[in-house]
């Protein structure tokens, strides 16, 4: 199903009234949308987990969507929150290799661009955005990220910490 805002909003309004077929269709569409949304901003091995975590959040926070407002900015806020939360978790993905082939479905590029994770990262100083990408998205060690970025290891840690804190404060504001 193509994830256009009006139809998703309609499905969500039905789901909030307890309509299960509408909810099933909504979740499938959201799952596909989230898969595209997170692609290239999360290691492929974590993509399904993050999509599922976000669907669980969507389910738990159904009441927080106001049907009189657009749906995708709401979903994007939920997705960004889960994404930043995911980045906060310390992990190292050795098998990382980002899928460069995945792209946003046609017709929704402008909406996706406005809501995108790149847009969120763009609000950080380049030094912070770079080390977050290296350490938390590509899964490099602090030493490897320091060598790649030209920053000291201590600075890499500080910039990751400050960048994540800033990202969490920008989830809704940054477009």
């Amino acid at each position: 199903m193509k994830a256009d805002d009006a139809s998703l909003s309609r499905l969500m309004a039905l789901a909030q009234r307890g309509d299960r077929p509408a909810y099933a269709a909504l979740l499938k569409a959201c799952s596909a949308w989230l898969g595209r949304y997170f692609a290239r901003r999360i290691a492929p091995c974590h993509l399904d987990d993050l999509v599922q975590e976000t669907l669980l959040s969507l389910h738990g926070k159904l009441a927080s969507y106001d049907p009189s407002r657009p749906f995708l900015p709401w979903l994007a806020a939920i997705a960004r929150y889960r994404w930043v939360d995911h980045l906060r978790k310390v992990y190292r993905a050795d098998e990382v290799g980002l899928d460069e082939e995945v792209s946003v479905a046609g017709g929704q590029e402008s909406v996706a661009a406005r809501l995108s994770l790149d847009g969120l990262l763009a609000h950080l100083p380049p030094s912070q955005a770079q080390v977050i990408e290296l350490v938390r998205i590509e899964g490099l060690s602090v030493a490897e990220a320091a060598s790649r970025s030209g920053q000291s290891e201590a600075l890499v840690k500080v910039n990751v910490h400050r960048g994540l804190r800033k990202l969490s404060a920008l989830i809704e504001e940054a477009e």
Binding site: G18, R20, D48, V51, Q52, L55, L62, S64
Partner: peptide, 24 residues
């Protein structure tokens, strides 16, 4: 995009768990 079978299972359980929500 091909959906992970676990995601299908999760969606089925979430749909099963659906209750009407009082909108905020």
């Amino acid at each position: 995009m091909i959906m992970d079978p676990d995601t299908d299972t999760l969606i089925a359980s979430l749909v099963d768990d659906l209750r009407p929500a009082r909108v905020l």
